[in-house]
């Protein structure tokens, strides 16, 4: 069966399932209830995107630093990386966000929960960012470095013309994957009353009691952000992979 047809069929199966579900819920499916609350959701989306973007940039920086630490000559630094990574891998994101906002933040007299929540998100994603930097840099083989030396490139030229252009291409797809993880993870910030998309749905739900409408609206909005992102990643991989 050809590829497009298969995908169309797969989508249809999913749509059929959702149609069934929504028909069962038809009594509660009055999207007219959204009237007057549009701005709430728009604000939610905007905040979700802004927070996620901040977390993306922040975790890229901390992830790169952790990558450098993991490559350090000093055993102590490398041990720090191992311990930190193990702790993060063993911690649920929601727990990390709560600990940051209610335990670690206040210990340093920081009571801005939103700030500490985003910091928690950044800390949580850091080891995953380290991993993508590690795999990107390790994909440049020793023989390539040998060739660069042989031809007599200066350090600056090596980075400018050979290393960075390759690393960026290898980095982009997993980086965008992590961005998608961050966007989804940012929903948990609602527990700190950060006015992102999940929080918007929550407010809407508790004022109108239109639970099904609230959940479906939120879900569709998340998907509208993340699926184009993943499609972009696929396109990028096809077009630019090495």
């Amino acid at each position: 069966m050809n590829k497009i047809l298969s995908h169309v069929l797969a989508v249809l199966v999913f749509v059929a399932f959702m149609v069934y579900v929504l028909l069962q819920q038809a009594a509660f499916l009055d999207f007219g209830r959204l009237q007057g609350y549009e701005w709430l959701f728009v604000e939610g989306i905007i905040n979700t995107i802004i927070l996620s973007f901040i977390a993306l940039v922040g975790s890229m920086i901390t992830g790169f630093l952790l990558f450098l630490i993991s490559k350090s000559k000093f055993e102590l630094f490398r041990a720090f990386d191992t311990v930190f990574t193990e702790i993060i891998y063993g911690t649920p994101l929601l727990v990390m966000i709560m600990i940051m906002a209610f335990v670690i933040g206040p210990a340093f007299n920081i009571y801005q929960r939103a700030f500490m929540g985003v910091t928690g998100l950044i800390v949580y994603i850091t080891p995953y960012m380290k991993n993508i930097f590690r795999s990107a840099f390790s994909s440049i083989t020793d023989e390539q470095f040998m060739a660069m030396d042989l031809f007599g490139f200066t350090s600056y030229q090596k980075y400018r013309y050979i290393i960075v252009p390759q690393v960026v291409r290898i980095l982009m797809p997993p980086l965008m994957n992590n961005f998608s993880l961050i966007i989804k993870g940012s929903a948990l910030l609602n527990v700190l009353s950060v006015r992102e998309l999940f929080y918007a749905h929550h407010i809407f739900k508790s004022t109108t009691y239109a639970t099904v409408v609230a959940l479906m609206t939120m879900w569709v909005l998340y998907i509208l952000i993340t699926i184009p992102l993943s499609q972009f990643i696929r396109y990028f991989e096809r077009r630019w992979s090495l």
Binding site: T141, E143, Q144, M146, A147, L150, F151, G152, F153, Q157, Y161, I162, P165, Q166, R169, L242
Partner: peptide, 25 residues
């Protein structure tokens, strides 16, 4: 030097693999 596997820079065309070296070094 010719390596076991071609060892061209993978992000550059065959032509650019050569011109980069000639221009920069």
């Amino acid at each position: 030097f010719v390596f076991q596997s071609h060892n061209l820079f993978p992000h550059l065309t065959l032509l650019d693999n050569i011109t980069l070296i000639l221009e920069k070094t």
